[in-house]
Amino acid sequence: MRKTVLIPLIFGIAGVAVLVWLGLWQLERLAWKEGILAEIEARVSAEPVALPEVVEPGADRYLPVVATGRIGPRVLRVLVSRKQVGPGYRLISALETGGRRVLLDRGFIAVEDAIPTPEGAMTVRGNLHWPDDRLSSTPENDVAGNMWFARDIAQMAGELGTEPLLIVAREVAPPEPGVTPLPVDTGHIPNDHLSYAITWFSLAAIWAVMTGAFIWRQGRAAKGAGT
Score class of each variant (00 low, 15 high):
Arg2Pro: 06
Arg2Ala: 11
Thr4Gly: 05
Pro8Gln: 03
Pro8Ser: 02
Ile10Glu: 09
Val16Lys: 11
Val20Phe: 09
Leu27Ala: 05
Leu27Pro: 01
Glu28Leu: 12
Arg29Gly: 08
Leu30Met: 00
Ala31Trp: 14
Trp32Ser: 04
Lys33Arg: 04
Leu37Met: 02
Ala38Asp: 11
Glu39Asp: 02
Glu39Gly: 02
Glu41Cys: 00
Arg43Thr: 08
Ala46Trp: 12
Glu47Gly: 04
Val49Met: 11
Leu51Asn: 03
Val55Arg: 12
Pro57Met: 01
Pro57Tyr: 07
Gly58Trp: 12
Val66Phe: 12
Ala67Ser: 14
Ala67Asn: 09
Arg74Trp: 14
Val75Tyr: 06
Val75Gln: 13
Val78Lys: 10
Val78Tyr: 15
Val78Glu: 11
Leu79Gly: 00
Val80Lys: 13
Gln84Phe: 15
Val85His: 07
Gly86Asn: 10
Pro87Gln: 12
Ser93Asp: 05
Ser93Ala: 14
Ala94Thr: 04
Leu95Lys: 09
Thr97Val: 11
Gly99Phe: 14
Arg100Gly: 04
Gly107Pro: 03
Gly107Leu: 03
Asp113Leu: 03
Ala114Cys: 10
Ala114His: 10
Ala114Phe: 13
Ile115Glu: 05
Pro116Arg: 10
Pro116Leu: 08
Pro118Glu: 02
Glu119Val: 06
Ala121His: 12
Met122Tyr: 15
Met122Phe: 14
Thr123His: 00
Gly126Gln: 06
Asn127Gln: 10
His129Pro: 00
Asp132Pro: 01
Asp133Gly: 09
Asp133Arg: 14
Asp133Tyr: 14
Ser137Ile: 15
Asn141Ala: 07
Gly145Thr: 02
Gly145Ile: 00
Asn146His: 03
Met147His: 14
Trp148Phe: 13
Trp148Asp: 02
Trp148Glu: 04
Ala150Lys: 05
Arg151Ser: 07
Asp152Ile: 08
Gln155His: 02
Thr162Glu: 07
Thr162Asp: 03
Pro164Lys: 01
Leu165Phe: 05
Leu165Glu: 03
Ile167Ser: 10
Val168Lys: 03
Val168Gly: 07
Arg170Ala: 15
Val172Gly: 00
Pro175Asp: 05
Glu176Ala: 02
Gly178Glu: 07
Thr180Met: 10
Pro181Arg: 03
Leu182Trp: 05
Val184Cys: 01
Asp185Arg: 09
Thr186Val: 14
Gly187Ile: 12
Gly187Tyr: 15
Gly187His: 12
Gly187Asp: 11
Pro190Thr: 12
Asn191Trp: 09
Asp192Phe: 15
Asp192Arg: 13
His193Tyr: 03
Leu194Tyr: 08
Tyr196Arg: 08
Ala197Ser: 04
Ile198Pro: 00
Ile198Ser: 08
Phe201Asp: 04
Ser202Ile: 12
Trp207Lys: 06
Trp207Asn: 11
Ala208His: 09
Val209Gln: 05
Gly212Glu: 03
Gly212Phe: 07
Ala213Asp: 11
Phe214Ala: 08
Phe214Arg: 14
Ile215Phe: 02
Gln218Phe: 08
Gly219His: 12
Thr227Ser: 11
